[in-house]
Amino acid sequence: MNTYGGRRTQGERDAITVEIGYALCSAAFAAAVLFGALAGPAYLFGLPGGVRDVLVGSGAVLAAVVFFVRVVSVLVRFARGDQPSRSGRTGPGS
């Protein structure tokens, strides 16, 4: 993405779109797993209302934080170009 002020190519726009989709999907998955891990036992074991409310509330807050942090970290890594090497593609030095 070195076209500062210029138009992006179709390939660059596609890469950004895919990366945004990946960031949102992976963040939603991570948040759902965290929420399920915290709030799930409250319903599974039939805990009392106060304990259940605390677990569900903390699960929701932590899931939102994890979602935001994951999206930002993926998009910042993409903008910096810190992409892990993709299998099947070799660099010029290998």
Rank of each mutant, 00 (worst) to 15 (best):
C25Q: 08
G50F: 14
A39M: 08
L47M: 07
A42W: 06
A63F: 02
G57A: 15
A28Q: 10
V71W: 01
T90W: 11
R70M: 03
R70S: 10
R52W: 03
S73H: 05
A32G: 06
V18I: 14
V56G: 00
V71Y: 01
S85V: 12
A28N: 05
S73T: 11
A30F: 02
L47V: 09
L47N: 03
G91D: 14
V18Q: 04
L62E: 04
V56P: 01
S26W: 04
G36T: 02
G5P: 00
G81A: 05
G21Y: 00
R7I: 15
A32Q: 03
A64K: 01
G57D: 12
I16L: 15
A23L: 05
P92Y: 12
A60E: 11
S94K: 07
A31N: 05
A79P: 09
Y43A: 03
V72Q: 07
R8D: 13
V72Y: 12
G91T: 14
F35V: 01
L75K: 06
P84S: 08
A23I: 02
V69H: 05
D14C: 06
S85Y: 05
G50K: 11
V61N: 06
A79M: 12
N2A: 13
A30K: 02
V61A: 13
D82W: 13
L75E: 03
P41R: 02
F68L: 13
V69Q: 08
T90I: 07
G21T: 06
Y22P: 02
F68W: 14
A27W: 04
L47C: 00
V56A: 05
L47F: 06
G57H: 14
Q10S: 11
L44G: 08
L34F: 04
P41C: 01
R8H: 13
T3G: 07
G21I: 03
G50L: 14
A64N: 01
A15C: 12
V51G: 01
S85M: 02
G11H: 01
L34E: 01
S26E: 09
S85K: 08
L38V: 11
R70Y: 03
Y22L: 13
S85P: 05
G93S: 15
G93K: 11
I16K: 10
A28C: 14
V76S: 07
L24V: 13
R7Q: 15
A23M: 09
T9F: 05
S85N: 05
G21H: 04
A15Q: 12
V74S: 03
L38E: 09
T90Y: 03
A27P: 00
L47W: 00
A27H: 01
F68R: 10
L47R: 00
A79I: 13
V76K: 03
V69N: 04
G36H: 07
V76T: 10
L75H: 00
G59Q: 01
A63D: 05
L62V: 08
G88W: 01
A27S: 08
V69K: 08
D82G: 04
V71L: 07
L44V: 10
V51H: 00
L62Q: 07
G5D: 06
R13N: 11
V18R: 04
D82S: 15
A79K: 11
V56R: 04
F78Y: 14
T3V: 13
P48N: 10
R7Y: 13
S87H: 12
V65I: 12
T17S: 13
